[in-house]
Amino acid sequence: MSFLLDPTRPSLYICLLSITSTPLGWSFIARNEYRHHTLTKFIGARTACSIFGVVIFLSGLLRDVLYRIALHDQPYYPLPYEIQTILAWIIFSVGNFLVAASFVRLGFWGTFYGDHFGIVKDKRVTGFPFNVLENPMYFGAKLCFVGAALWYERPAGLLVAAYVHLAYMAVLRLESPFTDMIYAKRRPSNGTARPMS
């Protein structure tokens, strides 16, 4: 097992902590904002959500850097070109495409918890890629972890990707019912996203 994973490297645990804390932190902060309007009361829904979105984006970048550092600290296992390059690029590209397509479909507010800040669409997004996958952004992110593990030829990265899957499943158990509740309470208006009063 030591040729696949080096459990003595602190970077591995820092990476796992980042993978766990970032989506859970986003979810809890957004849920607090929905219930208590902590930021919205002071700076308004759109400004608060914009700042929150930037924080989410930057923490995602930090998580990716920590993942790359962790990979480089793990044992190297050479793969055939077809897996290391071609398959890695296909998986990574599909993952990024799903993340980008989700962002385009949801828009900034939809991607960064706008509905928790009161910026709610009249109905949930159901067009591509949401008509193919229930959570395409999370699924795409998981594929990116797998693609990076293959690209850098680090078997430990596949174990981290499996951990990402478990962490995201846990977050979705919190997020999905709460988002369902938000949209169940929503009354149709003129078809545009607007802050709820």
Rank of each mutant, 00 (worst) to 15 (best):
M1C: 05
S2Y: 04
L4F: 11
L5Y: 09
P7T: 03
P7V: 03
R9C: 00
P10C: 03
P10I: 01
Y13K: 04
I14N: 01
L17F: 14
T20F: 15
S21G: 09
L24P: 10
W26C: 14
W26F: 14
I29M: 15
Y34R: 13
T38K: 14
T38P: 07
I43R: 12
I43F: 14
G44R: 13
A48N: 15
A48S: 15
I51G: 07
I56S: 13
I56N: 15
L58T: 12
L61A: 02
D64M: 14
V65E: 10
V65H: 03
V65K: 04
L66H: 01
L71S: 04
H72F: 02
D73P: 00
P75R: 05
P75C: 04
Y76C: 01
Y76R: 06
Y76H: 11
Y77M: 09
Y81Q: 14
E82D: 07
Q84S: 13
Q84E: 12
L87M: 11
A88Q: 08
W89E: 09
S93N: 05
V94W: 08
F97T: 06
F97D: 00
L98V: 04
V104Q: 02
V104M: 07
R105V: 02
F108T: 05
T111Y: 06
K121C: 02
R124G: 01
N131G: 06
V132D: 01
E134Q: 10
M137H: 12
M137C: 01
F139R: 01
C144T: 11
C144F: 01
A148E: 06
L150H: 02
L150R: 04
W151V: 00
P155L: 12
L158M: 08
L158I: 07
A162N: 05
A162T: 11
Y163T: 05
L166E: 14
A167Q: 13
A167I: 14
M169S: 11
V171R: 14
V171L: 05
L172T: 01
T179F: 02
I182L: 05
I182K: 06
K185W: 00
R186F: 03
R187P: 00
S189Y: 13
S189M: 10
G191P: 09
T192D: 10
A193V: 14
